[in-house]
Each structure stands twice: as C-alpha cells, then as structure tokens.
Design a protein around this nucleic acid. Structure first.
Lengths: 334, 334
DNA sequence: CTGAAAGCGCTTACAG
DNA sequence: CTGAAAGCGCTTACAG
C-alpha cells in the first residue's frame, strides 16, 4: 500500500505539500498540486483513515443507533438517514443496540474514540445523565425517541397528538373498551412532553378522560415488540372475563400478531376485536386484514435528522426540536 | 481522554507493560497486571482504535455488503450474521451498496485500509477480477450470491435445484405457461454453477425442456426489484395477447406487487394468474393472498457465513463451498 | 518479567 | 508557496 511518503517521493516534493493537497489547502501552487495529484493517481494512493484519525481529523462518518434492523420502521428510518448523509459525502455506521444499554454505549464510544463525527440516536437505552457525558466528544442528536430538558437537537413525531386523536377516532368508530400495548417494560405516567412513551400514553389517557373513562389495568400490556408478543397478548385478552373491544397495539408488528392469532381462534377482526397498529409499514396495507394504523413519518424524520446533523457539522444553528405529524390511516382492522 | 501514558504513569509502570496487559500478553507478573488494570479502570481508559490500527493490529470488525437494508431478505441475513459475530466479540459494519459497483469498492477498501478484518459479500456488483485484488488485504467470503471458479469460501443456497423443483411444482399444479422475472439487468444463459442467476434460470429452463417447452421471450422480465416493479410487470402481462398463466416473481417483494395490481384490476390470483414468490419473508404468510414461495434459508446461511469467517480468522480450514437447500412453501398464490 | 526507543502514516505549527 | 520536524497513541522488537 502506497503511503504519503511514496507519493511525495514520486512527485519530488515533501510530505507536507502532499498532505496539503489531500486536505485541499489553498497554499499550494497549481503546478505542484497537479504533480501531486498525478502521483497519487499513479500509485492508487488513498490516505489511511487510521493515521488521519490519530491526528484528530474528521472521519466523515456518522453512527446511527437503532434497536433492531429487522424492524421495518427502523430499517426505513436508517435508509432515509443514510441516503441523505451519502449525498453530503458522509458514511453511515448502523449500530444495533438490541435494546441493551451497553450496546448503546458502544456507539457513544465511537464518538469518544474519534471513529465517528456524530451519533444519531433513534432509540434511548441509557439515562440522559450517562449520555450527556458524551456530548463533549462530538455531536449527538435524538430522533424518534426523545426526552424533555435535554440540550441536544431533537427530531420527533407528535406522539401525544397522534395517540390522542387515534383514541378519539376509536371512540368515533364506536369502540369504548380500549386496551393499550407498548414495548416498554412498564408504563410510567408523566407530564406532557416528558418522553416518547409517556406522551403516547398521555394522549391515550386524555382522550379516555374526556370520554369519562378511567383506566382498566387488565387492558394494559407491556413488553410488546414482536408478532409473537402480539399473539400472546391476544391469548391474554381471551382469558379475560371483561374483554376490551379494541386494542392500540403499539406497532404494526404486534398488531399483525394479534390479528393472526385472532384469525386462528376464529375471532373476527374488527367485529369482535378491533386492532389499531402503529407505524404503517409498507406491507400493512396488503395483509389479509389490512391494518388501520397510525402512520409514522419515517422518511420525513430520517431526512430532517440527517439534515440537522449536517448543519451541526458545518456549524450552523439548528432548531432545538422539530416535530412531525402522525396520521391515522383507516383500513380494515379497526 | 486518558491515554496509555496516563495509565502507565498512574500505575508507576512503563507503557510497554500497559500495552502488554491490554493485549493479554502472558509475560506480565500478576501483581503488575492488577495494578495496570485498576489504573485503567480508575481512568476509564479505552485504547484508541485508530492508534492500534495504525500499528496494524486487528480491528475485530467485519464488513457485510448488501444491496439495500430495507429489503427484508437482507436485513434478516445481516441480522443472523451480526448475532453470530457478536458472540465472538466482533463488530459488524453494514455497507449498503445500492447495487452500485463503486459502493462495493468502498467496502473492499475498508479491508485495504485496515478498518476491518474481513468482508462478507452478500451480493456481487464488481467483476471477480476486480474483487480478487483485495484478497491480499484480508479475508473475503461470498454469501448468497456466487460465482464459479473463485478462490474464496462460498456459502450459498442451491438455486438450481430450488428453481428446477419449483418449476416442476408449477407444472404439477396444472400451470404450463410460465413467466419468469429477475432482478438482473439481463438474462444470461451459462453452464450450471456459473452463478446465482444463471443457476436459477437454468433450473427453470431445464424443467421447461423436460416438459417439451421452449422459452417465450415475452414472458421474461428483468430489472424487477420492488413491489412497484411487480405492478409494472403485471401491467405488461395484461398487455400481452398470449398471456402466461403463472409467474415466478424472483422475490416476494415483486410477487406482492404483482398480486396487488392483480387485485386492483380484478384479476384473480391464483385462478387467472398464479404468482410464485421467492424468499419467504415473515409477512408473506399473512398477506391478503398468502404467497406460495421458495423459501431461502436466511438464518442458516447467515450463521454459516459468520462461522466460516470466524474460522478463517482463527486460521482454521473451511469448506470451499457450503450449500443450503431451498424449499417450496405452498400457500394461496400459486 | 520489564523498559527505552523506534516507528506506523498522517497533520500542523514553525520557519523560511 | 514550501519543507523539516514534532507528535498523535499505540505496538513491538531489542536489551537487559
């Protein structure tokens, strides 16, 4: 592999000059610049990233954290981010956290160790006090998930509004016994805008209250991620004496699991049990029972996230928080 | 950020000794090893990867190339690979090529520039003569796609056998006018085992021949990747005077597009047109028209690929080629 | 078992 | 505009 000295030797110049043309420094005569360039070409020279990093220069790569790449919501989000970053000449490093705090730290350490210029967190596994320590090493932004009172830019959807309206929509459709599922380990009730999950739940609950309804704890399901989880939720619902007539599934994946198991057990969706998904995955419209769902603006969020990070890189100011709208897509399941 | 010298100073030892405990060298007394370790802990010290790479040491990361992460076949394949690699302490770098030769070179250059220890190619965009140049920089293996006469390990499925049997299956089901779609830009006919696409097509064609049937060029469709492409294919089929009665769609994505457009145009699947997918994506069973499809052994291939790469890393010998079986899953669409 | 020193391939003041 | 030299944080012979 050719090094910078090889290029210098071939061009009959110093490594300093070669380094200057690599870095587009203006202080090089056109003539020498050309001879360096042709020498680089002739040798097929590419600067060794490790050596540049060691000197603390930019890496032109960004890390993006997601729980799991097989989840279409996240693969599309990452895709939107990567496409935008690509255009600007940045590489993207996808880090799957598998919902483990420790893996999220791996991504953050990439920043500390100067392997990336910034990290885009699409999910949140650690407490903010831990994450905020890493802000001194580079740029961090939050996408999709969020917290109140953090000092990094946020790109997110209006979860409260979306869930509030979706719950109202279910009432309008004639449902009144509404179950609720979430991926979280537990449901915490907090003030508005506190975080992603609390907002979803607050929107749900506020609509309930307006309809003079309280919470039925039997109708709350946590830890729901996969279609398999959805099937189990359906079974738990069937075991209940007092059954809900509709469920907000938390994701399309879970919604699919619920409708599948319902079909298996000959329970009619949406007649006997309505199912409301969240995400609007590409396939959701083409399922045996097309999902009524809350569409997340994946592309918009991904693009805005990438743009925000790019602005940060070029030292421009960015909005503290950018909020995209959720939208109810009415199909067959509710 | 703490450096190796900081640790050495705090421990009252030389950097050499610290480096030795970082690299698990046996030539360090237990006592000093402990004091180094506690110094590292106290400072929260992590070796800077760039510095280690510069000295040519292992990176413990692997690159995996795929055309596009939003394609579930590839996201599941990557996932299987990453999980296995994780267990062995390796990180995974996902490189989307967007089917561009140039982006594939990016991944290969990672190897040349010592940013990864190996690359797992799940698709093939460059000619082999270009790729083989990179073998001197580290380990390369081929997964999913393949070529004949390459000198790197291959993990693949038996495309010929799968497509041969699938075509026979279609005949058994009573179809006889079989159309064929592929993601390739063109269909090339080559000897058996030449490559992925040629094998698929050869399997298809051999079955045709055995049924005394020739090729109808109006029934061959290229460049089919997305559901959108599937819709267009359906439209092209409808414009034909002599229509096929079934189509091998090349992927479940394309199959979904075809069935969707068929529904829209009130054409009955599988009555008026049968549709055979390829992949067996998780959702394929739960579509409005559940797909009959050729299942690809994604997990098996991913795991074998990762294992093969790990064996290569530890200098063990590996089989030149490992072949997994394709399987026909009969559902509603054909 | 331990340490001083050279060197990996770059960039960046510092002189000129 | 150009070059000699120091130094980024490590590892690895080389001595001892």
């Amino acid at each position: 592999m050719a090094t910078i000295s090889d290029v210098a030797k071939l061009a009959g110049l110093s490594v300093s000059t070669v380094s200057r043309v690599i870095n587009d420094s203006p202080h090089v005569s056109e003539k020498k610049r050309n001879s360096v360039k042709s020498a680089m070409e002739r040798l097929g020279y590419v600067p060794l990233p490790a050596a540049r990093q060691l000197r603390g220069s930019k890496t032109n790569t960004m890390a993006v954290t997601i729980p799991r790449i097989v989840n279409p919501f996240f693969s599309y989000l990452v895709d939107a981010i990567e496409q935008k970053l690509d255009e600007a000449g940045y590489s993207t490093l996808i880090v799957q956290t598998f919902s483990k705090a420790e893996e999220e730290l791996t991504a953050l350490n990439l920043l500390k160790n100067q392997q990336v210029d910034g990290v885009i967190l699409c999910s949140l596994e650690n407490t903010w006090s831990i994450i905020s320590d890493y802000c001194k090493y580079g740029k961090i932004i939050l996408v999709n998930e969020y917290l109140k009172d953090v000092h990094v830019p946020i790109v997110r959807a209006d979860q409260y509004d979306g869930f509030y309206k979706a719950t109202n929509f279910l009432f309008d459709e004639g449902y009144s016994k509404i179950a609720y599922a979430t991926g979280r380990k537990s449901i915490t009730i907090m003030e508005k805008e506190a975080n992603f999950d609390a907002d979803r739940f607050a929107g749900f609950q506020d609509s309930l209250s307006e309809h003079k309804l309280g919470l039925n704890h039997d109708w709350l399901f946590t830890n729901a991620h996969t279609a398999e989880d959805g099937k189990n939720i359906f079974k738990m619902i069937m075991a209940l004496d007092n059954k809900p007539d509709v469920i907000i599934a938390g994701s399309d994946e879970v919604a699919m699991g619920i409708t599948q198991e319902a079909e298996e057990q000959k329970v009619k969706v949406p007649k006997q049990l309505g199912v409301l998904g969240v995400d609007d995955q590409p396939v959701s419209a083409n399922l045996r029972i097309p999902l009524t769902t809350i569409r997340q603006p994946v592309n918009e969020m991904g693009q805005k996230a990438a743009e925000t990070m790019l602005h940060l890189m070029s030292g421009e100011s960015v909005p503290k928080v950018q909020i995209c709208k959720l939208k109810i897509i009415k199909r067959a399941s509710a």
